[in-house]
Design a protein around this nucleic acid. Structure first.
Lengths: 211, 211, 211, 211
DNA sequence: CATGAATGAGGTTTCATTCAT
DNA sequence: TATGAATGAAACCTCATTCAT
């Protein structure tokens, strides 16, 4: 496709009629489907349109180009995940450190696993389009929320930004690993447990918190 | 490119003469260069050949197709990394657990950072071609080596395979995060320290090893 | 666009109500605007409709197709010009030859320069649609009017049709040249003077008129 | 096609092998053919390639895009014409004014009529691509050559640049008119005669030269 | 009458790959 | 063996036009 990114990634037109909204949704969902069944570089705008039950032209009424279509889908997902993390952080202020970590890790894993197909599909496009930038932006939001939360942890010296980034990227790495192996419910349970454990252990070590 | 052609990914001919070897190396290196300067989907066989100073025809004498070219480059890299990890494991048998972890993590990080450009470039193709399969295979090698090593750790109940996979994927995730941010020497130092810390903490927790 | 559809170029419906007339005018004007700001092949019916402040559907209520829209605009312009020339011819019967030429040339230049933007814009579509045919038809009208006028010129042997066509095409060529250079008032003045001079000189030569 | 003109119009690759040269020529000729038989907006790169007996891909090896193909063909033609005019000017220095005019006009008409099909075809693209700019540039060359020549005309006050431009655009206009009517040999003869006459008469008038 | 969502044929361009020289 | 001209399938995207609301 080409990572030129010189064209706007913004949606071209916001649907006003009900029919149009349905169309947009169908296209977004079709994008996921095609991503999963064919892979990124077998994903063609025609194929997506077909799957969505509309014509290519219609697709291009709502997305300026292929890139912006992928972008939109990715953004929506990242948005959800980071919203989940932020919410978890928000409701864990002033809790004990290990509780904080547990809640956040579980929120992260759960939001990722809510639609594992989507999560998996999107790994494919995370580096295309404006992907990296989006990812970075979303990460930052999560990092901030976590930093704010950790400042309220009782009797610990709060970890620095790097440690938080470490923890987040470990979370992403481990979750990804499980997703790519094709996650069974059992696996997901194990992931939650172990990831909580790992992050707790790390945070303890890093904050020198004597629990 | 697309994973269409389920054609063999093996190099077409093994270069025997010195000149041929030089050519193959030049092509491989050119692939990295183009990957970094243009991105995966701006990478064309013609462009690679140009950069390597040969003609497309020549490229196709050594690689059956574009896929196998990318595959070869990726394989070489993964090979190096997992060899480094295996070696680290091998020479850490019977050492204390925390020592084991330190040595392995450092070996991993160092081998990834030896040519950060290459590591970064290859993230782009890890999902194409036979990428995922290759990655999985290489991971398995590392996992086995680590498992074998951990069995020799004094006075700890050895962690199960899942925990090892957790640790490895955390390592990959954190390293990737730093690589994608553009790694400065200071960052890399921090990464080593913190990643060692995280993995040690996790292993301790998981093995219930009382050090 | 292509002269594909040999569909009628006639307007689809003649607007009778005032509102409709306003709409038609707005569309015609918008066509010129878009022609000037975007060029022929950036001119889309949607764009014209937008500029006119109506929907595409409405545009198609008044014009059978894009072709007929352009055709109508072009026709209107040519109509004006040739009407101006005819009027000039009509009121110059029996005048001296040089007077005839002066009046006609000035009428031509002035009618072209009344809306230089329109004139310029229309060069772009003169060859599309039924353009050439329209132009030929309009020319013929002017030629006839001039021929009739010249027959009344005192003491000269009237020039043949070819000479008249020569003069007309020289007029068109020179005017176009100035229009395309972006006509300043000074330029236009010069054009009038010199074009009168040229045509007078030519007519004198051709009629062997001894003034 | 779009008159964006943001991409280079230069040929992409200069053919080195004999085969390649033949290919390029065939493509250029095919462009003319298609222009004449289908018109600009029925001219597609596929169609041109077909007519040339090559594949589209081949066309794109030598021309960066459709625009540059048309540009190249137009440029070649304008080049020829203005070279003919310049040569005519060069060999008419110091001749009598009427002789000068005759030689130049005839050179212009003859070079245009050498391949009337090409001349006619190119009117269609003169306004697309970088057309106007090219035309202007070429005109300037002719104007300069004529100005230089006229300075050497015996016993006349040399006309100013505007008068020369007037004459040139009259020449273009009249020739075009004949070309578009479909030029018979008889017509062409008449055109030569009358155009010489017109230009001579105008130059005489303008230079106030007493022959 | 007006709207604007939907259509889909068709145009441009790229690029992996082959093969005659 | 090396070259690079040629191939052509296939991708992206536009836009004239229609028709249900």
């Amino acid at each position: 496709m080409g990572a030129k990114g010189r064209t706007s990634l913004e949606p071209r037109k916001t649907p006003v009629q009900a029919r149009a909204t349905a169309t947009v949704d169908a296209i977004a969902e079709a994008t996921i489907q095609v991503l999963l069944s064919h892979g990124v570089d077998r994903l063609t705008t025609t194929r997506v349109a077909e799957r969505a039950g509309v014509s290519v032209g219609t697709l291009y009424q709502y997305y300026r180009n292929k890139q912006s279509l992928l972008f939109a889908v990715l953004e929506d997902h990242l948005e959800r995940v980071s919203a989940a993390v932020e919410a978890a952080c928000a409701r864990s202020h002033h809790k004990p450190l290990s509780e904080m970590v547990r809640v956040v890790v579980e929120a992260f894993v759960d939001s990722k696993m809510e639609r594992p197909d989507v999560s998996t599909a999107l790994y494919q496009i995370a580096k295309e389009v404006g992907g990296p930038a989006l990812v970075k932006r979303t990460n930052q939001r999560s990092r901030k929320a976590m930093a704010a939360m950790l400042l309220t942890a009782p009797s610990v010296s709060p970890p620095d930004g790097f440690a938080i980034e470490m923890m987040l990227s470990a979370m992403r790495g481990a979750t990804r690993s499980v997703l790519e192996a094709g996650p069974s419910p059992a696996m997901v349970r194990k992931l939650r447990l172990q990831l909580v454990l790992m992050c707790q252990a790390y945070m303890m070590a890093v904050t020198a918190g004597c629990p």
